[in-house]
């Protein structure tokens, strides 16, 4: 039952997502692509690109899009896909929301506790590994092109390297990188001779 699976999957992702948007992307990638096979690596990468370019937190964006696509891929119609999208994006919010309310109800003021600090420090380190794992599973021939030294592979590698350099070193807004990638892709692959 796709709807129950979507609900449970995104409930779980919401509960264990420490460390912001990219950690959530990594969790969604692991569940949705590697575990459930609701979409391919390429589809997931495209969804991330679209979610980056639209307003709103990337976690909600990707959850909505994933819910929609998973239900369509399971062979249902568009109204049901909209329900799947709503279900996925709302279930990701349930547990954090409940925990926040619980925290406010139980504690009148937040106490700084050494154990909590250590937990956060360990979690921050774990999140690095989780995001790195997602990056590894996205470094595929589907996303970069094949064979090696083909036009697509060389273009992809250049775009990849330039994005890392400019976004990490020069702190360029990721939106510019996406804009350049889209334009380069549109020009190079439309005008290059077909292999």
């Amino acid at each position: 039952m796709i709807f129950l699976q979507l609900f449970l999957t995104f409930l779980k992702i919401g509960a264990v997502n420490f460390g912001g948007g990219y950690s959530m992307l990594a969790l969604i990638e692991n569940e949705v692509v590697d575990r459930h096979g609701w979409m391919t690596t390429t589809e997931f990468t495209d969804i991330v690109a679209l979610s980056q370019m639209t307003p709103g937190p990337i976690g909600i964006n990707v959850a909505t899009y994933t819910g929609y696509t998973a239900v369509i891929s399971a062979g249902y119609n568009i109204p049901l896909a909209v329900c799947g999208a709503l279900l996925a994006s709302l279930s990701v919010l349930i547990i954090p929301f409940s925990l926040m309310l619980l925290l406010f109800a139980v504690l009148s003021h937040t106490q700084e506790h050494k154990s909590i600090k250590t937990v956060m420090a360990v979690l921050r380190l774990t999140v690095i590994g989780i995001i790195a794992a997602a990056a590894c599973s996205l470094l595929t021939i589907d996303n970069f092109g094949t064979p090696a030294l083909s036009l697509q592979f060389i273009t992809s590698t250049l775009l990849f390297a330039c994005t890392i350099y400019f976004v990490w070193h020069k702190q360029v807004n990721p939106l510019w990188a996406l804009l350049v990638g889209g334009i380069v892709g549109g020009l190079v692959y439309s005008f290059a001779p077909a292999p």
Binding site: Q52, T163, G185
Partner: peptide, 27 residues
């Protein structure tokens, strides 16, 4: 074609926080 250009950029955008978080998490 546009998405073929976007994909490597997206993968790079997911690699970058690995480095930036490594700094802020005191690796």
């Amino acid at each position: 074609h546009i998405f073929m250009g976007l994909r490597p950029v997206v993968v790079a955008l997911i690699v970058v926080p690995v480095f930036t978080l490594a700094r802020s998490a005191h690796l």
